[in-house]
Design a protein around this nucleic acid. Structure first.
Lengths: 228, 228
DNA sequence: GGGACGCTTCGGCGCGGGACGAAGCGTGCG
DNA sequence: CGCACGCTTCGTCCCGCGCCGAAGCGTCCC
């Protein structure tokens, strides 16, 4: 009757503890089983069972290193699916001041799977187009290639692989597009390595814009609005 | 701690009965509650409860018409999410001859949410690029615009809206790209209206290639392989 | 207006699966 | 070499939820 087992993946993502783990892993980094247990707020044994099921379902990969076992999102397909899902997921009601502060941080700069989103993500997207680093069809111009190389971004590597190269992705806080795709992942990686952003916490997708980053974005003419 | 409630959507999709309903609705047409109950193989009351939850979760829309209530996928975002999910979902083991036949039909021509996929989808994708109806960046050429207009496809309408216009989407049976996006939806709609394809059954995403469609694809030089 | 039909709401049953703690296994540090 | 640590496996409990049948509400047909 059917081709793929939608319900199986859905059920995997549908458990609150597993969803929290996956959300944490969407930060892009591999996390140890113990960290994930803490993040999900459950015991180590329970977390282990969940992770085993996620692994069996092909949603996460595991790499053993010493006495730790690091889990990460299995691949771009999985990341894309979770990203798409989070776009239709209902916004979670804010319950505390601490959460409100966190929500504000997320709205300003965060990772969307593995690329930059939020106010900063949209501003970068707009600036890249305004400076003709990207064409309206989201291809890299010669000027853009030079600029990106200066940021340490490997455009050729981003072009390899079957993942979509660059495309707009509607930002759920800004309601305007930010840049997605392998190029966006490369750029985000480059900017973090250049110290424009630092990751706030292990279990969070929030990014902190550094002074260097603020200067760099200003030089690009990126508009961070009043929150700058 | 989190922005959206991933687990809520996941749990909605994670139930086998609901997943079957959603899968059926991915055919693109609105279906009545009773039809969906039959498709899912459950009682009317149970189906009604499931549909209420899907509606509450924003995954489906309902439109009352006489004493029927027709349900459909709530929007392109939801369709995209389900599509992305089905790409990571494990292939379901084939259990019967009837299912094997159905799987073969799906592999030849089916809808992927609302656009053409399978052997025919990949062939169309390749032909559009080979004839320069589409650029490698997936924009429509003047030649393509004329040709598509001849098929009754409204390219301007496809360009409107915030949904992605045209992009490759990896076909899970062919392991090569077919065309996705609003343009692909418009083309598929046009081809069905021109009688190149007919929808096989209510609960199926399978399409039947008609003689007219076979002739049309042949004229395009589309390669359907040995299964033609 | 009456009856058939389509759908939803409600009450109750039963099972799947998520939780924990204890125990087992492998790795690394002192 | 032995203990501490990280992770997994196993046994057990129990809550949540998917299922159905009965009843209620609205719509269409005769």
């Amino acid at each position: 009757m059917h081709d793929t087992d939608l319900a199986a993946v859905g059920a995997l993502i549908g458990d609150p503890s597993r969803a929290r783990m996956l959300d944490a892993l969407m930060g892009g980094r591999a996390l140890a089983a113990g960290e994930l247990a803490t993040i999900a707020g459950i015991g180590a044994s329970t977390a282990s069972e969940h992770l085993a099921r996620l692994r069996e379902g092909g949603l996460v990969d595991v790499v053993a290193q010493g006495r730790h076992r690091y889990y990460r999102i299995a691949g771009p397909d999985v990341g894309a699916a979770l990203e798409a899902l989070s776009h239709v997921a209902p916004p979670r009601p804010v319950r505390s001041l601490r959460q409100a502060g966190h929500a504000q941080a997320l709205a300003f700069a965060r990772t969307c799977y593995d690329h930059l989103a939020g106010v900063c993500g949209v501003a970068l997207h707009d600036a890249l187009l305004a400076h003709d680093w990207l064409t309206p069809a989201y291809d890299v111009t010669p000027v853009g290639a030079a600029g990106l190389a200066g940021w340490g971004v490997d455009v050729a590597a981003a072009r390899a692989g079957r993942r979509s190269f660059a495309r707009p992705c509607l930002d759920w806080t800004e309601r305007r597009p930010h840049l997605a795709g392998s190029l966006a992942a490369g750029i985000t990686d480059g900017l973090v390595r250049r110290g424009w952003f630092v990751r706030r916490a292990v279990d969070s997708r929030a990014l902190l814009l550094t002074d260097a980053g603020r200067a760099g974005l200003a030089e690009l003419g990126a508009d961070l609005g009043s929150s700058a």
